[in-house]
Write a protein that binds this DNA or RNA. Structure first.
Length: 581
RNA sequence: GGCCCCGUAGCUCAGCAGGAUAGAGCAACCGCCUCCUAAGCGGUAGGUCAGAGGUUCGAAUCCUCUCGGGGCCGCCA
């Protein structure tokens, strides 16, 4: 239930009636008409810009139009006072029972409060993390993992049918490097000295892989030429790395629906077929790329390559799909992979990538546009860097020695819930500061703690009620007389709760889960504020044994807040806390 | 040289699909604990929304340009 769309329908109906009566011309565009909370609550509960939007196409003055719409709107039982203000805003005061209805709806729907049908069951594929299967996930991947997962949950909540997907880059040169690195660890496990040459992966996490190789192959791979062992060691190591990555993801609460192997595309003719498809559209040709201007590489030599005409779809230059030696570039199988997503019937594709992939965005969008005849949109969300701090001091990591801060390090230090929430308190395209000390601080400038505290407080109120012998289960709360909630702080809180369904839809529309985190912080703030009023004015306390009806109504409001926090945290993948330790 | 992202209060950042007087936290200052968790709450102060044009009844928001910060730019993925 979204009160704003409900009232917008009333406005649109009023406009339609004006058209019927001949007071407005037919065929007016109404998409731009909005119903939203006014910035200043004294203006009313909701405001619509209908008169201003329609004034020009209708050839009428906005005030006149508003004056005619106002009486029609006030006929609706859900609307109380209607006023026209400023350049032509129509301010609406809602019937009191609409507000109390919000509290009742929240309690009745529980953690499903705010679910939307906006997605109308459209199929969305969210591809995220997709880290090379060559080692454990690090902090940067963590942000992508959390962001992608929360975005997927958000879209699910908004009525889309969501698939979480991981693309395993197991087809390129990096898995050969992995194999060679693992082979050295295998030699080490066999009692030899490993020779970890420049360019190999030096990390300790390959030691168990070496041991497992010995377990499986004994010493049969020793002193064999690379050709003899590369393929099997590669597959073995890749598979172990994926087990590691799956476990990493699970430790932050991320579970993928699909793991899609790049290698599985090779030798199936899928890549070739995809390129034939593009060729059939005249988008593949042999050509020479211009060197990048202003930054000509040292040894630039023009060479003919197989190119994809991505400039047809807004890219800056055409892109190679084959290397000089005739093998595929990374781009070719990736096009086939995205074609596969289109063929699987997704209506919307979302790729979550690191910011260093910025140059990749246009070509991939071009490819998907071409392959789907512009039917399937591809949105690419780039996640910016995570800067680590410890108590305000930059937390340096050394890439040279192969020690980097891993996802596991972060989760072990602060826990999955804090990791997730903090990573979502910034929009994806802004850099994020992550301070191991600050995120655990118990203060208002730590949003995780503050929101959890609000939830715990609502829980504590329920406990107190129980101790006082007040039945405060949901069925009892459903019978509360909510008209008792008349104080401005209470109405303000209810307003905030009423915004939640609308917020879910806008956040989902923009593919921006961080909006949920900010909303929860605001809601928590209003709740703490209300609670604290009871400190100064005992009459405003939630639990007042001498006023059972009022107590019940306020407990219902607290419960509604609890439900919304819980639903919002659910989208972010964070477990609400029942008490603060 | 080109492309992408960013520029909002001293600091860190929000700003809802263009709407009314631009918001929050921190830092500063002033108040509030015999009282449902003061790990908190209330209040004061603080901004030419980088700059200049344009579109619009209306621009922090959309378009163009300039300046500043970051990222990317064939044979890596």
């Amino acid at each position: 239930m979204n009160l704003f769309t409900e009232i917008r329908a009333v406005v649109l109906d009023a406009v339609a009636r004006q058209i019927e009566a001949g007071a407005l011309p037919e065929g007016l565009a109404t998409q731009a008409i909005t119903v939203e909370p006014p910035r200043d609550p004294s203006h009313g509960d909701m405001a619509t810009n209908a008169a201003m939007v329609l004034a020009k196409p209708a050839g009428q003055k906005p005030r006149d139009l508003a004056d005619r719409l106002a009486p029609i709107l006030s006929e609706d039982a859900r609307i109380g006072e209607v006023t026209v203000a400023g350049p032509g805003f129509i301010n609406l005061r809602l019937a009191p029972n609409l507000w109390s209805g919000v509290v009742a709806a929240a309690i009745a729907n529980g953690s499903d409060f705010g679910r939307s049908q906006m997605g109308v069951g459209q199929k969305v594929n969210v591809e995220f993390v997709s880290a090379n299967p060559t080692g454990p996930l690090h902090v940067g991947h963590t942000r992508g993992a959390v962001f992608g997962d929360a975005l997927a949950s958000l879209l699910d909540f908004a009525g889309f049918e969501v698939t979480r997907e991981y693309y395993i880059n197991d087809g390129g040169a990096q898995v050969d490097v992995l194999a060679r690195s693992a082979y050295e660890r295998y030699r080490e496990a066999c009692g030899l000295n490993p020779e970890i040459a420049e360019g190999l992966y030096p990390g300790d996490y390959l030691i168990p892989v070496g041991e497992a190789l010995k377990e499986k192959f004994g010493d049969t791979l020793l002193d064999q030429p690379e050709d003899a062992w590369l393929a099997q060691v590669r597959d073995f190591a890749t598979s172990m790395m994926m087990d590691l990555i799956r476990a990493d993801l699970k430790s932050v609460g991320v579970v993928m629906d699909v793991y899609y192997s790049e290698k599985s595309l090779y030798g199936t003719g899928r890549i070739e077929a995809t390129l034939e498809d593009l060729e059939g559209r005249g988008l593949i040709y042999e050509g020479v790329i211009e060197p990048p201007k202003g930054r000509v590489p040292e040894e630039w030599e023009p060479r003919p390559q197989t190119l994809f005409k991505s400039t047809e779809y807004g890219d800056d230059t055409d892109r190679p799909i084959k290397k000089a030696d005739g093998s595929w570039t990374y781009f070719a199988p990736d096009i086939a992979y995205h074609k596969d997503k289109v063929d699987r019937g997704f209506d919307l594709l979302i790729d979550v990538l690191g910011a260093d992939h910025g140059g990749y965005v246009k070509r991939m969008k071009a490819a998907v546009a071409a392959l789907s005849d512009n039917r399937v949109p591809l949105d690419i969300k780039l996640c910016q860097l995570v800067k680590l701090f410890k108590g305000g001091e930059p937390f340096k990591m050394s890439k040279r020695t192969g020690t980097f801060v891993t996802l596991r390090d972060v989760v072990q230090e602060v826990g999955p819930d804090v990791t997730r929430f903090v990573m979502l308190t910034r929009k994806n395209d802004a850099p994020l500061d992550f301070d191991f000390v600050k995120v655990l601080e118990q203060s208002r400038d730590n949003p995780v703690w503050y929101v959890q505290y609000a939830h715990a407080r609502t829980n504590s109120l329920m406990m107190r009620a129980g101790e006082a012998g007040i039945a405060a289960d949901d069925s009892a709360l459903a019978r509360a007389d909510l008209t008792a909630l008349a104080h401005e702080a209470e109405i303000g809180l209810i307003r905030k709760i009423a915004e939640f369904p609308r917020l879910v839809e806008t956040a989902a529309h923009h593919h921006e889960p961080h909006r949920v985190a900010f909303y929860l912080y605001d809601l928590a703030s209003e709740f703490h504020s209300w609670w604290n009023r009871g400190q100064d004015e005992p009459g405003l306390r939630v639990i007042r044994e001498e006023a059972p009806d009022l107590t019940l109504a306020r407990l219902a409001l607290s419960r509604a807040v609890q439900v919304v926090i819980s639903a919002g945290l659910g989208i972010l993948g964070v477990a609400p806390m029942k008490e603060m330790k």
